[in-house]
Design a protein around this nucleic acid. Structure first.
Lengths: 211, 211
DNA sequence: AGTTGTGAACTGATTCACAGCC
DNA sequence: GGCTGTGAATCAGTTCACAACT
């Protein structure tokens, strides 16, 4: 077992993927699975599965494998998905709308409880149950709504300022969709999704594919 | 210099990021930059920058640094961004809409030239210049429009089938937003963006942050 | 017999450090 | 003096291989 802080990000990502697969297996009433089967389903090796799990403890029975519902429960706890996460979304544009309605967020316990945008034309509009609020309300709402995570879905130009405001308001984790690097102070985590870079990488790989 | 096929994905991603930074510098009329400066701007070391570039050739002048516009040009060529990429988007939902209007795709030469969705209520609707077409038209349109890349923005259940249809239609690269692993045959590249996993990773990191 | 858990070996990526050039 | 390009050294992540257990 290891300190949570020195677990590689790749391991955490794979643990998330194992959990998703285990939940599918639970629906199909599969009781038990081996590391080899689980690895095959998600595209890694048996050894990789076992090593990843070993960061967090011992979950299997030798000669048998892993109990599917029990392992799923354990992984949910490890990933802190056994509780609700309250989230602020900044940016009421097209990406914001897509994230707002993304089912899998809600299924996993992520609740977008506040929506911000500084475009005065959007202010006061409602998206489902959410009202678009101006950025000047951010700090107050984050505090009152006990919001822990922020999502940045604004264009590049505004993103750095939004990050600073989220951090100042007390948010502890940020998911950033803007194409900039955010330098958080200690005590704040940032994960970034850079759509243009993903597509560029795909273009490179495709162009150099020997058919 | 190395064969394009054995360049790590991480290197390609960083090269994309260097290019973005260089284009910002070009706008600001910066002529020359050192590996240390470039690295600092995007959060890696000087040695990392030089090693990454070394996969593709020699671009700098010792004692001086790199010429910004020249290096940007070279990186655009390396990444195959010096041409247009024709793209099919499958899934006229919220994520599809966000991708359709995403500026940075267009700025980089990616043109979404066809939009598909099998929901009959959406069929025939238009998004900007794009008409929503049924999946049965996919193969013909991909051929006629000389489409090389596909984006999957449909829910999990349909994603595998969509991938197969795209591949059968002759697409050579796929950007996948559905939460499944796609097993492409040789000659096809897949990159995946898994939004739920990104947010879960953020939750894990945030939960285990020693404040 | 079958499968886990894990130290050891290996592979790949990053950082170091310095020769070579401007 | 300053900075690149690169081999050598280090570090991290993955795979191997087998003892321990059911």
């Amino acid at each position: 077992m290891a300190e949570p802080t020195d677990i590689p990000r790749a391991v955490i990502q794979r643990i998330s993927i194992y959990l998703r697969q285990l939940e599918r297996l639970t629906v199909d009433d599969v009781e038990t699975i081996s590391s080899a089967q689980l690895g095959k389903a998600i595209g890694s090796s048996d050894a990789q599965v076992r090593k990843d799990l070993a960061y967090f403890g011992q979950f299997g029975r030798r000669g048998v494998g892993y109990n599917v519902p029990a392992l799923a429960r354990a992984l949910r706890t490890i990933l802190s998905l056994d509780r609700e996460w309250r989230v602020a979304l900044v940016g009421a544009g097209n990406i914001g709308r897509a994230l707002c309605t993304y089912r899998m967020f809600r299924e996993r316990g992520f609740r977008i409880v506040a929506l911000f945008d500084d475009d005065p034309r959007k202010e006061g509009c409602t998206w489902g149950r959410l009202k678009v609020r101006p950025m000047r309300d951010l700090a107050r709402v984050v505090r009152n709504e006990r919001i822990e995570l922020g999502i940045i879905a604004v264009p590049q130009a505004g993103a750095q300022a939004v990050a600073e405001q989220l951090i100042a308001a007390g948010v502890r984790g940020i998911l950033n969709f803007a194409p900039i690097r955010i330098h958080p102070p200690g005590g704040v985590e940032v994960c970034s999704v850079d759509l243009a870079i993903e597509l560029q990488q795909l273009a490179f790989l495709t162009a150099h594919l020997h058919r």
